[in-house]
């Protein structure tokens, strides 16, 4: 099957468009997802993608257009408003962040459902395509959608590269950045906005329900292989792109296989392999190392060079190593 796939990727127009789109979405979400993962905002992606649904419905309701840029704009707007809501609730009340995120995702999604069903009462059948945003259908990607993903995604990655030093500080030592006179609040807003852009661009391919996995999974996998932020971002982008292309291809194999779940399962598989087998951090290597040490201890030898700390304490990233 693999033999037939690669040529088809270059010859079959639809597959090329779909594969390119899904790959670009995966790369964008994967690389920006690293920051969500490191800043413990993994579930923000889940909430934002759910919060995008009413934006999609509203954009369609107001403009009557189903063009991707219009819907993406609406999605970005409510997704962004949603993150502001969470920030406001956490700041001005005793409600913890996880509850605020849960309220955001369920309530906004509920509003989205209300709007979608409201649209479905209408005389036109034009809203039919909006359903694909729930689970994603890469087959509905058009050339101009892919161009949109590539251009907006390119701008997002360019902004990330330009503000690299600042976002790195934000991820690891926000206080130090503040002392250096960098407006960390604005950097935070920039990074969060870039994440919102990545999420809403992925909705058409992966869907509202599963988009968060594409943000977190490649980053979590990449984290196991390296301790350098730069390498982690590049690797996560590559893994995300791989999962995107692979999942898009899988969804062409059978009728009605939604792209989102296929991509997510591939990415989850990569995470499982990484957590088990990545050199140094892998769980399996840990087991082997421990057994060796135990054998050596039983033989009465010392344990020179043995890393003594628990894996949890090695979570810290960056620095030497």
């Amino acid at each position: 099957m693999d033999g037939g796939f690669l040529p088809a990727l270059f010859t079959d127009h639809t597959l090329r468009v779909v594969g390119l789109g899904a790959g670009a979405v995966g790369a964008l979400a994967g690389s920006l997802g690293c920051f969500a993962l490191l800043r413990r905002q993994s579930l923000l992606g889940d909430a934002v993608s759910h919060a995008a649904l009413p934006g999609i419905a509203l954009a369609f309701l107001l403009t009557g257009s189903r063009a991707t840029p219009v819907l993406v704009l609406g999605a970005a707007l409510t997704g962004w408003l949603g993150t502001l809501f969470v920030m406001a609730v956490v700041r001005h009340s005793r409600i913890p962040e996880d509850s605020a995120l849960g309220i955001l995702l369920s309530v906004f999604f509920g509003v989205g459902l209300v709007l979608l069903t409201f649209l479905q009462r209408g005389p036109t059948a034009a809203q039919a395509g909006l359903d694909t945003f729930l689970f994603g259908q890469a087959a509905t990607l058009l050339v101009q959608d892919v161009i949109l993903v590539l251009s907006l995604g390119g701008v997002a990655l360019l902004l990330l590269a330009l503000s690299w030093k600042e976002v790195k500080l934000l991820a690891f030592d926000r206080e130090f950045g503040r002392v250096q006179g960098i407006p960390m609040g604005r950097v935070d807003l920039l990074l969060t906005s870039l994440l919102v852009v990545a999420i809403v661009l992925g909705l058409q391919t992966v869907g509202v329900v599963l988009m968060s996995a594409l943000v977190v999974a490649p980053a979590a996998a990449a984290r196991q292989w390296t301790d350098s932020l730069g390498r982690m971002v590049i690797l996560a982008g590559a893994l995300g792109a791989g999962a995107g292309v692979g999942g898009a291809w899988m969804s062409t194999l059978g009728d009605g296989i939604p792209t989102g779940p296929a991509i997510v399962l591939l990415a989850s598989g990569v995470v499982a392999v990484s957590i088990l087998a990545a050199p140094r951090r892998g769980v399996l290597w840990d087991r082997i190392r421990r057994r060796r040490v135990r054998a050596r201890l039983a033989a009465g030898g010392g344990t020179p060079g043995m890393p003594s700390e628990a894996p949890g304490e090695r979570e810290r990233l960056g620095g030497g190593d």
Partner: peptide
């Protein structure tokens, strides 16, 4: 396992 945080 210490490889990922709880939210992740």
């Amino acid at each position: 396992s210490g490889r990922v945080k709880e939210d992740a």
